[in-house]
Nucleic acid binder design. Structure first.
Length: 291
DNA sequence: CTGCAGGGGTAAA
DNA sequence: TTTACCCCTGCA
C-alpha cells in the first residue's frame, strides 16, 4: 500500500456534498474539515475541495488516477447533461441548478448489489451502519492517517458469514437474501463479469432480478449506480412522490402506478431519465414540500 | 415511560 | 393484488 495524491483543476460539476449526500452511496463520511473519506475497492480516498482545486489523497496499490477518473465518472460532461435537462421544463431547470455538481458515481457492481439489497424497506443511517459492520467483520483492514478503514468484503469473504451471523449484524429479514445472493454470485449462477459486458439494459436487468432480494427498484439502482445505464429510472417512494407532485397531481399519491411513472419518464427525459431523477430527487428531498 | 408508525422493497400467499 | 417482514428512530 502506497500513499497517493492527485490534484484536479477546473473540474466542471463537482460538488462534494451533492455527490455524496444525494443518496447514491453509503460509505463516504464527512470529516471535520469538510472533506470526505471513503473506500473504493481496495483504496482509501480522501477528497477535498479548495476553490477551483480538488485534492484526492489516499492509499492504494493500483493506478490512483485511473481509479479516481473511473469512479467519479470524470469522462462524462455534466454541463452538457444539465443543459439538455434544463431545456425540458422549469422543474429540471431549477433542480439542475440546485444540484449543480452532482455526479453519478461508478460504483463496484458487487458492493452495489449487496448495499441496495440491504436498503429495502430501510433507512439510510441504518443501511450505513449495517454496511460498516459487514466491512469491519469480513473486509480487509487499511490504516490511513492514523485511522482504521475496512474494504467492502469480497463474495468469498462474505460467504463465510452464516445467516445467523448476518442476523446478528442487524440485517433483519434481509439476512437470507444477502446470504443467498452471495452464494449465487460466488457459484456464478449469476455471472457479474458477464453482466458487465452486456449491452442491453433489459437483459442486464433480467440477470440481476434472478438474485434473491433484487426486485425492480433495486435492479434499476444497480443499473444506474454500478453499470452506468443512465436510461433506467428507479422508482421508490420518493421518486413517486416527486413525480406525482410535479407532473401527475393525483390526490392519492399511493394510487399512482409505476407504469404511469415509467412511461412519463421515458417520454419526457430524453433518454437520460436516471440523471434527471437524481436532480429531481435530491432537490425535492432537500427542500421538502415547500419546493 | 410505553406504544406505534414508518423507512429509498421484496417475496410469498 | 395484498401482506408480513427485522430493527431503529422519532414522536405522541
Amino acid at each position: 500500500m502506497e500513499k497517493r495524491e492527485l490534484k484536479l483543476l477546473n473540474q466542471e460539476s463537482f460538488d462534494l456534498a451533492h455527490i455524496f449526500e444525494c443518496g447514491q452511496c453509503f460509505r463516504w463520511n464527512k470529516e471535520e474539515d469538510g472533506s470526505y473519506t471513503g473506500i473504493i475497492k481496495d483504496s482509501v480516498i480522501n477528497v477535498q475541495k479548495k476553490g477551483e482545486e480538488i485534492f484526492f489523497k489516499g492509499k492504494s496499490n493500483e493506478d490512483f488516477e485511473k481509479i479516481v477518473k473511473d469512479y467519479f465518472d470524470l469522462d462524462t460532461n455534466y454541463d452538457d447533461i444539465k443543459k439538455k435537462l434544463s431545456s425540458i421544463d422549469k422543474y429540471l431547470k431549477i433542480s439542475t441548478e440546485f444540484g449543480n455538481g452532482i455526479r453519478i458515481l461508478h460504483q463496484d457492481l458487487w458492493e452495489c448489489i449487496i448495499s441496495f439489497i440491504i436498503s429495502a424497506n430501510n433507512n439510510i443511517p441504518r443501511i450505513k451502519k449495517i454496511i460498516e459492520r459487514l466491512s469491519e467483520n469480513y473486509g480487509e483492514k487499511i490504516e490511513f492517517n492514523g485511522k482504521i478503514y475496512y474494504t467492502f468484503p469480497t463474495p468469498e469473504d462474505l460467504s463465510k458469514a452464516t445467516i445467523q451471523d448476518l442476523r446478528n449484524m442487524g440485517l433483519g429479514f434481509r439476512d437470507i437474501r444477502v446470504y443467498n445472493t452471495t452464494h449465487m454470485i460466488l457459484e456464478k449462477n449469476v455471472d457479474l463479469e458477464k453482466i458487465k459486458k452486456m449491452n442491453d439494459s433489459n437483459k442486464m436487468r433480467d440477470e440481476l432480478l434472478k438474485l434473491d432480494g433484487v426486485g425492480p427498484k433495486v435492479a434499476d439502482c444497480i443499473l444506474l449506480f454500478a453499470l452506468k445505464r443512465y436510461d433506467v429510472f428507479p422508482i421508490d417512494v420518493w421518486v413517486r412522490r416527486v413525480m406525482n407532485d410535479l407532473y401527475i397531481h393525483n390526490e392519492n399519491e399511493e394510487k399512482v402506478n409505476k407504469k404511469e411513472i415509467a412511461n412519463l419518464a421515458e417520454s419526457k427525459f430524453l433518454g437520460i431519465s436516471g440523471l434527471a431523477q437524481q436532480y429531481l430527487f435530491y432537490w425535492k428531498r432537500e427542500n421538502g414540500k415547500s419546493a
